[in-house]
């Protein structure tokens, strides 16, 4: 069912003009297409056969039956159309992923005026997902999106389709959502950590020690101190409860820096930074990121990691 390329291009351009992208779209007659399904044509054939039968047997009631079938079909046009009409679609959340893998976009459907049954959503090359929305409610769906290369991956045109209630007709609409998924740079292994704080940090990570600070001395234990830093050996020797004191390294925290990766291409720099974010994340050491035009303060945790990766993905338009 592939059209020749020039025709398809024309069609795509026409669609783009007719259905410009938006963050939120309520389907109306301008956007909804309708056409009989295969079964719909079969059904019409049956109606035609009954019509011929009625004519030949000069049987008015069989004729009436064939007219009833035809009328059902016509009324079904309205009902099928109605099932998609006034359906609202808007952006939901977005789940980023590494380039080459899959991200996901959340599509929120809302029913302002009536309920919508068995609506199928899909974008090209993906499986259908079905959803029903009750009047006045919202439902959301996550649709996977392959992320080809780093950056913002715009949502493809979404196909919204329904055959409800009789399956005789198919009504559909294309929705261009102004919605995107961030594709993080694919991590690229690199030995040098492009971070302020230098080599000792890097070694500290690689040797797997907990803590990266210089040991400074002991002080008496203050409640609230981390129990990991208590000098348990000393306590066992009867020296009382003492806390090990460490000196923070220069700058206090790690800064991953773009400008320490001189001589690499843009994408490669981003990939190396991505790699090191993943490396630093499990260390529970606050780390920050300095990119041209954006500085993100050091912190730890999942949210922080995502924020940094998102920054790498959206570089240079944050």
């Amino acid at each position: 069912m592939q059209l020749p390329a020039p025709i398809r291009n024309l069609y795509e351009r026409w669609l783009a003009r007719r259905l410009p992208p938006a963050r939120q779209i309520v389907l109306d007659q301008r956007r909804i297409f309708i056409f009989p399904t295969g079964y719909g044509f079969f059904y019409l054939l049956v109606a035609a056969l009954l019509f011929i039968g009625g004519i030949n047997y000069e049987n008015n009631l069989i004729l009436a039956l064939s007219f009833l079938l035809a009328s059902l079909f016509m009324v079904a046009i309205l009902h099928t159309f109605r099932n998609l009409s006034a359906l609202g679609i808007r952006n939901g959340g977005s789940e980023s992923g590494f380039a080459g893998e899959e991200g996901a976009l959340e599509i929120v459907l809302f029913a302002q005026r009536r309920e919508h049954h068995c609506v199928w959503l899909r974008w090209r090359g993906q499986d259908d997902q079905q959803i029903s929305i009750r009047r006045g409610e919202e439902e959301s769906l996550w649709l996977n999106l392959p992320l080809a290369k780093r950056g913002r991956v715009m949502a493809p045109r979404l196909k919204v389709e329904s055959r409800f209630p009789l399956g005789l007709l198919r009504t559909w609409s294309y929705v261009s959502l102004d919605h995107y998924c961030l594709a993080w740079p694919r991590p690229e292994e690199s030995l040098d950590c492009p971070a302020d704080g230098g080599k000792e940090n890097q070694q500290a990570f690689s040797s797997g020690q907990s803590g990266n600070d210089e040991f400074q001395g002991l002080r008496s234990y203050i409640p609230g101190d981390s129990l990991r830093r208590v000098d348990w050996k000393g306590y066992a020797r009867g020296r009382g409860l003492n806390t090990k004191q460490f000196e923070e390294p220069v700058g206090g925290r790690l800064w991953l820096r773009w400008d320490r990766l001189q001589g690499l291409g843009e994408e490669q720099r981003l990939s190396v930074l991505s790699y090191w974010i993943l490396q630093l994340d499990p260390q529970r050491q606050p780390y920050g990121l300095k990119l041209p035009g954006l500085t993100l303060a050091p912190d730890t945790g999942d949210v922080h990691r995502w924020r940094l990766l998102d920054a790498l993905a959206s570089y240079p338009d944050f």
């Binding site: 234990y221 203050i222 409640p223 609230g224 101190d225 409860l241 206090g252």
Partner: peptide, 22 residues
């Protein structure tokens, strides 16, 4: 300041070796 510890805000439970209590 950056060298402030939680105890500086909340207070300290001090172990008194004489009473053997905090």
């Amino acid at each position: 300041t950056s060298d402030m510890l939680p105890a500086d805000i909340l207070g300290v439970s001090v172990f008194d070796p004489n009473t053997q209590q905090f």
